[in-house]
Design a protein around this nucleic acid. Sequence first.
DNA 1: AAATGATCATGA
DNA 2: TCATGATCATTT
Length: 225
Amino acid sequence: MHPPTSPPSCAAQLLDRCQQIAGLSLGELAAMAGIAVPATLQRHKGWQGQLLELWLGASAGSKPQQDFPDLGIELKTLPIDANWQPLETTYVCYAPLMAPPGITWQRSNVRNKLGQVLWLPLEGDRRIPVAERRVANAIMWSPTKAQDAQLCADWEELTEMIVLGQVEQITARQGQALHVRPKAANGSVLTDALGPEGERIRTRPRGFYLRKTFTRQILLNAFAQ
DNA sequence: AAATGATCATGA
DNA sequence: TCATGATCATTT
């Protein structure tokens, strides 16, 4: 078994690829792909995500697009514990701090990314060696009306603060499903944003993240089917 | 123990 | 620098 050399041509093929690797460990997948497994993810935080991208034929690289642009599908690995509880929040996308006036939820980067997501839960307990962590069955998900409304409400609240020059007042405590946190290599990285008087200020880059309570519901709903 | 704020690696 | 892939580690 080898990683595919081309992107999946349809959603069914993508799901088929997921079934092929479900239940396998990261060590097995890495070995078949000829990739070394890091002992710890401390300095390889995105490693498993990139390994799964390879196995599913996602277009690599860092584009502000979906992983499968032709299918409109975004791939997200989701580290879970023994009870299927997410262990981490889920990064969605960079938060534009110089948002064009008139940006709407419908046209936002967040909504575009979350329109259709292929969730790939995997064992993430740090007590399990990285190579032994197994991949679960994938879950294809699109937001329900209620979920979309919740995300929209959070996005509008946070985006309004950004547009009004209150980015420095934003806290990760805001937002029921979606929140904003720093997103950078370190605390010295700065980017342009708007100040209270509409002036240009320098601040730490931010990103949108999904809370664990939100992704947990997605997993629970998938089980309920 | 959970959540927030900080950080790591990589490519264009 | 921005954006991707995220988890780490300190604070609450």
